[in-house]
């Protein structure tokens, strides 16, 4: 079953097109990545799918067209976005950030929220150590973990990650990608936007290459990773 299907989606900023006629789909429980250079429109695409930006074309989530709905309705339907700038509640504690992530389940009561919190803490033990600390005082890697944890508290069917490795040290990037593969087993589908094409293609099932607002290549990750154009442009020299 396809959890997300977008068809001929276009976004323009004041008349200037940022992405044009993009079609892609994400199977339930799979990981799909969109790679491409800086400024190709990757973030724009995710923001359009989440409803942060108005977009033309058709966006279907779990078979339902969600074109005219706002961000809140899409969260309610089971989408979560971890934006490039994280957008955390900087002056609030790590725990409060996470609890607010579960805002859409506020009617479920305290015990359910506490259970979810423990699930996130087992995924990101660092967050548990820092649960009382203000989000604004965290390191870059911890912020990314918190942003992912907050998004997962909404128990999404589709998690969209915008450049999760941006500005992070290589060891932390490895941790983050390890977490992404761990999530595969939990049934959540992931749409991953990355400049780090090598890491993204390693964890993803399928990939799309976005260049100047258009999809130029698509296919399963193994094929893409072996494609000579990808190798030249994004992966550099591949050894071993």
């Amino acid at each position: 079953m396809k959890i997300l299907e977008i068809d001929a989606v276009s976004v323009a900023y004041g008349g200037i097109p940022a992405v044009t006629g993009i079609s892609l789909s994400v199977e339930a429980g799979s990981i799909v990545t969109v790679i491409g250079p800086n400024g190709a429109g990757k973030s724009t695409l995710l923001n359009a799918i989440m409803g942060v930006l108005p977009a033309g074309g058709v966006i279907r989530f779990q078979g339902q067209p969600i074109g005219g709905t706002n961000i809140e309705a899409r969260v309610q339907a089971g989408m979560s976005l971890v934006p490039e700038r994280r957008e955390l509640f900087a002056t609030m504690s790590v725990e409060d950030n996470l609890r607010l992530g579960g805002f859409r389940f506020r009617a479920d009561g305290h015990a359910a929220a506490a259970r979810e919190l423990e699930r996130i803490f087992s995924l990101f033990p660092r967050l548990k150590e820092r649960r009382r600390q203000e989000a604004g005082t965290l390191s870059g890697g911890e912020r990314q973990m918190l942003a992912m944890g907050r998004a997962l508290m909404a128990r999404p069917r589709l998690l969209m990650l915008d450049e999760p490795s941006l500005g992070l040290a290589p060891l932390i990037v490895r941790d983050i990608f390890h977490t992404i593969t761990e999530l595969r087993g939990t049934g959540v589908a992931i749409l991953l936007v990355e400049q780090n094409a090598r890491a993204a293609l390693q964890v993803a099932d399928r990939g799309y290459v976005l260049e100047t607002g258009r999809v130029t290549l698509e296919g399963d990750s193994a094929t893409l990773a072996a494609d000579h154009r990808i190798v030249e442009m994004y992966l550099g020299q591949v050894r071993g």
Partner: peptide, 24 residues
């Protein structure tokens, strides 16, 4: 209270609040 925190969250980061489903 969660609602009180949701109001604070909206004040701190409007987009962040919308992304967790707190309607403006």
């Amino acid at each position: 209270t969660l609602f009180g925190k949701a109001l604070r969250a909206t004040a701190v980061n409007r987009l962040g609040a919308r992304l967790v489903g707190i309607a403006t």
